[in-house]
Simulated scan of single mutants.
Amino acid sequence: MRIKRHSTVLITIAAAVLLTTSGCSGGLLGGGESEGESAGPIKLAMVIPISGSSAPTGKYMENGAQLAINEINEDGGILDGRELELVVGDEACDPQQGVASANKAVSAGAVVSVGGYCSGATLPQLPIFEKAGIPMIIPAANSQDLVNQKLKNVFMINGTGKQQSTAALDFIKKQGFTTVALVDDNTSYSKDINVETAKQIEEDGSATVALSTSVTAGESDYSAVVRDIMNANPELVYWTGYYQEGGLIINQLKKAGFAGQIMVADGSVDPSLSEIAGAGAEGVYATMTQTPDTIEGAEDWIANYEEEFGSAPGPYSTQSYDAVRLAAEAIEQAGSTDGDKIIDALEAIDGFTMFSGPLKFTPEHTLSSGGFVILKIQDGTFVLEDDLS
Rank of each mutant, 00 (worst) to 15 (best):
M1F: 07
R2Y: 15
V9N: 07
A15W: 07
A39I: 15
G40P: 01
I42C: 07
K43C: 13
K43S: 13
L44D: 06
M46H: 04
S53K: 06
M61L: 12
E74T: 11
D80Y: 10
L84C: 08
V87Y: 10
V88C: 09
A100R: 13
A105D: 14
C118F: 06
C118V: 08
A121G: 10
P127S: 11
F129T: 11
K131C: 11
A132W: 05
G133K: 02
G133H: 04
Q144L: 10
K152W: 11
I157K: 00
K174S: 09
K174I: 05
Q175S: 15
T178K: 11
T179L: 09
L182V: 03
D184L: 04
T197G: 00
K199N: 15
L211T: 02
T213W: 06
S214Q: 13
V215I: 15
D221S: 00
D221I: 01
Y222E: 10
D228R: 08
A232Q: 06
N233H: 06
P234V: 10
E235A: 12
L236V: 04
W239H: 08
Q244R: 12
E245N: 13
L248A: 13
Q252R: 00
G260L: 10
Q261Y: 03
M263R: 03
S272R: 14
L273V: 06
A277E: 04
A281G: 05
G283P: 02
Y285F: 13
T287A: 13
P292Y: 01
I295C: 05
I295D: 03
I302D: 12
E306I: 08
E308F: 02
F309E: 04
G310E: 05
S311F: 03
A312P: 06
A312W: 04
P313C: 07
G314R: 03
S320P: 08
D322R: 04
R325Q: 04
A330I: 05
D338C: 07
G339E: 00
D340Y: 14
I342R: 07
A345S: 14
F352W: 01
M354A: 12
K360L: 00
T362A: 00
H365P: 00
L367I: 00
V373Y: 00
L375G: 15
V383D: 08
E385K: 12
